[in-house]
Amino acid sequence: MLIELEGFPVKKGQEAKAQEWMTFLRQNQTQVSATLVAEKLLLEQIFSLQLNDRLYLCWYSHQDGIGLPVSESSNPIDQQHVKYWQECIDEQMPALKFKLENTFQVPGK
């Protein structure tokens, strides 16, 4: 099982486009959730964070193995997701990589 939390900076001037992206994902939640199977994702959550005058989008995920990268998907929802990523995420800036230190769970759950 792979558990990750990563934050990615949004390009300056693309904050409204990033909000459009999040709205697109919310409006297509059922279809987006169906695409997670190919990626072997059990859970994916996206958070936003304003840090040092910059917007970050942060992905929290539980993955059950290594699946098909979203960038290789032929699914139209995934293709739109990748398009938004390319328009919005500033890959020239370092991402926030969080290290998992502990996991706690209610016994029997």
Rank of each mutant, 00 (worst) to 15 (best):
18 A>P: 00
59 W>A: 09
42 L>A: 11
39 E>W: 00
37 V>D: 08
38 A>F: 01
23 T>H: 12
48 S>V: 08
50 Q>E: 15
104 F>P: 01
79 Q>D: 03
75 N>V: 09
66 I>A: 15
49 L>Y: 05
28 N>R: 00
48 S>Q: 14
74 S>I: 10
68 L>T: 13
92 Q>D: 15
29 Q>S: 11
55 L>H: 02
52 N>W: 03
17 K>C: 13
65 G>P: 08
97 K>I: 15
57 L>A: 03
73 S>Q: 14
61 S>D: 13
102 N>I: 07
44 E>A: 10
71 S>C: 06
30 T>I: 07
102 N>P: 00
76 P>C: 14
49 L>G: 06
42 L>R: 07
73 S>V: 06
104 F>N: 00
92 Q>R: 05
92 Q>P: 03
17 K>V: 12
41 L>M: 15
58 C>F: 02
37 V>G: 03
61 S>Y: 08
58 C>W: 01
22 M>S: 11
48 S>H: 13
77 I>Y: 10
58 C>N: 01
52 N>T: 13
99 K>G: 02
40 K>C: 07
59 W>N: 04
88 C>S: 11
35 T>H: 01
19 Q>P: 01
34 A>G: 03
80 Q>S: 07
56 Y>Q: 05
25 L>R: 06
91 E>I: 07
72 E>D: 15
79 Q>M: 04
84 Y>W: 02
20 E>I: 08
43 L>R: 13
46 I>E: 07
81 H>A: 01
56 Y>K: 03
50 Q>M: 13
19 Q>D: 11
99 K>R: 11
83 K>A: 11
52 N>Q: 14
17 K>I: 09
69 P>A: 02
96 L>H: 07
76 P>S: 12
67 G>V: 12
86 Q>F: 12
24 F>L: 06
56 Y>L: 05
94 P>L: 09
82 V>S: 15
68 L>P: 02
66 I>V: 15
62 H>R: 08
33 S>T: 11
58 C>T: 06
32 V>K: 01
101 E>D: 14
51 L>M: 15
45 Q>G: 13
36 L>H: 05
39 E>Y: 03
31 Q>W: 05
68 L>M: 14
20 E>Y: 11
29 Q>I: 08
29 Q>P: 00
25 L>Y: 11
98 F>I: 04
93 M>C: 09
81 H>C: 03
24 F>E: 12
27 Q>W: 01
62 H>P: 01
27 Q>V: 02
69 P>F: 04
53 D>S: 12
33 S>K: 10
95 A>Y: 03
99 K>D: 09
89 I>P: 00
48 S>M: 09
70 V>D: 07
94 P>G: 15
96 L>C: 07
59 W>V: 04
101 E>F: 12
17 K>N: 11
21 W>D: 12
65 G>D: 12
77 I>F: 07
103 T>E: 10
24 F>K: 04
44 E>M: 08
38 A>C: 00
75 N>K: 00
54 R>V: 14
23 T>A: 15
96 L>K: 05
72 E>L: 12
50 Q>A: 08
53 D>C: 00
43 L>K: 09
99 K>H: 14
46 I>Y: 05
21 W>V: 08
